[in-house]
Amino acid sequence: MQKVEYRINRLAGQLRLKIREFTKPQIVEIAGIKLPIPPNISRGPLEALYAGYYEASELKIIQANLEKHDRVMELGTGLGLLASYCAQKLGSDNVFTYEANPALEPFIRQTFAVNNVNPHFHNCLLGETPGMQDFYVAKSFWSSSTIQRKPDDQKIQVPVISFNQEMQIIDPTFLILDIEGGEYELFKYANLHNVRKICIELHSHILGSEKTKFVESKLADQGFYLDPKKRYVNELLFIR
């Protein structure tokens, strides 16, 4: 059923791309959140934005599980959709979001501005120890990662701050992770402190089965289990 829905969404995206040649809208709206369209955006993300399925699975999980007392920590801000949604529901002071790609910062801040929210935003990676790390910027922004996936990915250096230290300071209850395969390295050292819910896109097609099982085992070691009712293709909800 999910594959059929995905194909319908792709067809809808392609149709809306053709309509865009005439209308050229600069902002789309998903779940009440306005998203300005970055210039020179690649075809895949543009389709997702115009068809309305950009981050759709993560959004479904968050809509069903976000509670008024939650405190959110998000790794992988993207264009700021999920952070803006959470900030509208919880207040900006209860949302902390991190994006490694410096090219996305102006668009993230624009998204926050048009939605009248101001979550805590950091343009950096979260890692085991502070410092600098290689990061690979892909043509499609949503494929950028600490893992080089294509020869033409642009390697840059980005600042790193300590994940576990931020976890202690912020004390989140809800963790959102979409870091394009970086979840394997993260769970080698991650202490999830008082987190009760994790919305994660698990990139098994990047990690392979062994590393994917490693991530799942590390979550189980800290008391998390998969909610089978909130499972999509790669987007999952773990709770404890």
Rank of each mutant, 00 (worst) to 15 (best):
Y53C: 11
H122I: 07
L59I: 04
V95F: 01
G13W: 00
V95N: 00
E128T: 02
P38E: 09
C124D: 07
A87S: 04
Q26H: 11
Q88Y: 00
G13S: 11
F141Y: 15
L81F: 12
L35W: 04
N118E: 13
N123V: 03
V114C: 05
I61T: 15
S42R: 11
A31D: 15
E21D: 14
E99V: 01
G76M: 10
A83S: 06
R109A: 05
A113T: 09
L59V: 08
L126T: 05
A103C: 01
I41N: 10
N94I: 00
F22C: 08
R10H: 09
L79N: 12
D134F: 07
V114Q: 04
E128V: 03
N123P: 04
L79A: 09
L66M: 13
E58D: 14
T23K: 08
A100S: 05
T97Y: 02
L126A: 08
Q133P: 00
I61Y: 08
E58A: 12
I41R: 06
N9E: 15
N116V: 03
R10T: 09
A83R: 02
E58F: 03
W142Y: 11
S140K: 15
N65S: 13
E47H: 08
Q88K: 04
N123Q: 07
Q148V: 08
S144G: 11
G78A: 15
I147K: 10
S143V: 14
K34D: 02
D134L: 09
I30Y: 03
E21Q: 10
L35R: 01
E99T: 05
L104C: 10
E58Q: 14
T146G: 05
A31Q: 07
G44Q: 11
R7E: 13
P102W: 00
N118A: 08
V95T: 01
E55A: 02
E29T: 11
G78P: 12
N101K: 02
P130S: 09
A51F: 06
A103H: 05
T111R: 04
E29A: 00
Y85F: 04
A31S: 10
E47I: 10
Q148Y: 05
H120Q: 05
